[in-house]
């Protein structure tokens, strides 16, 4: 035990520190990947653009993060424009989405956007993210590219058509991970004005009721969603037991009552 005097331990720790400090980062191009699910990347005009999500994409609301590198270094202050695109046999269409802001978010230090996919990938068609990146003053490098993505099916989106043949997309965002008791309820409502344009609906009123069809009862003290911003509506839902629940929405958009729309949740 005499070999393990404190002085030896201190010297050993110092040596390890010195070696670690002097070690040359021989691979300067090595990019540290965030702790997220990587959707894909492309390189154009010296810019490498990567997209990430929390988990594999699924039908419904998805957070998407972007990173842009130039020669392995984070690219200054990019403007990131993107849209979703579904290519089908005879036509293509987009879906509701939100572009990232100009600043990195606090959570992942990445550029945060979102997309609502209203159908899954499959034989009907394939999804992609169409991206254009340029610097802030539009005088520098510009990169464009596509990231193909897979979208898994889910039942968190309801598309419907009103009597005047207007088409809407109702998306359940929260609760993403439901539990017994009171849960935050967040939905998004978008209008399909064209195949390429899904503006948010800002003035809908919603009456909401959760219902358990197999038990034939609901729950109490639910709060119907009201508009918060940009087509997102917030309320509360009470699940008094686990099982299969229907979230029933009675909507009124621009004075027109819409047939009840139902989203299902099972936990």
């Amino acid at each position: 035990m005499k070999y393990f005097k404190p002085i030896y331990i201190i010297v050993l720790v110092l040596l390890i520190g010195i070696v670690a400090a002097c070690s040359d980062d021989s691979d300067a191009d090595l990019v540290t990947e965030p702790d997220l699910y990587k959707l894909g990347e492309f390189t154009d005009n010296g810019l490498t653009v990567a997209a990430y999500s929390e988990r594999p994409l699924e039908v419904g609301f998805n957070n998407i993060w972007f990173e842009v590198h130039e020669n392995g270094e984070p690219f200054g202050h990019p403007h990131i424009h993107f849209n979703t695109m579904m290519h089908m046999e005879h036509h293509s269409h987009t879906s509701p989405y939100g572009e990232p802001g100009h600043h990195r978010d606090d959570e992942h230090n990445l550029y945060h956007g979102w997309a609502i996919f209203n159908m899954p990938s499959g034989d009907m068609g394939t999804w992609e993210l169409d991206l254009t990146i340029h610097d802030q003053d539009h005088s520098g490098i510009e990169a464009t590219g596509i990231i193909d993505v897979e979208v898994e099916p889910s039942n968190r989106v309801r598309t419907f058509m009103t009597e005047d043949e207007s088409r809407y997309v109702l998306t359940l965002i929260e609760p993403a991970d439901p539990s017994v008791g009171m849960n935050d309820l967040k939905v998004a409502l978008h209008k399909r004005e064209s195949m390429m344009n899904f503006p948010p609906v800002l003035n809908a009123t919603m009456q909401f009721e959760p219902w358990m069809p197999s038990m034939d009862h609901g729950s109490s003290n639910n709060v119907s969603p009201v508009h918060d911003e940009n087509g997102f509506y917030n309320g509360q839902v009470n699940f008094n037991m686990t099982g299969d629940w229907e979230l029933r929405f009675d909507l009124e958009i621009e004075g027109v009552e819409i047939d009840r729309q139902t989203l299902e949740i099972d936990f």
């Binding site: 358990m212 038990m215 008094n240 099982g243 099972d266």
Partner: peptide
């Protein structure tokens, strides 16, 4: 525990 006779319906659980 509530077990539906239709196996496609999830079990429900109540405290």
């Amino acid at each position: 525990l509530m077990e539906h006779i239709d196996p496609s319906v999830s079990d429900m659980y109540l405290l």
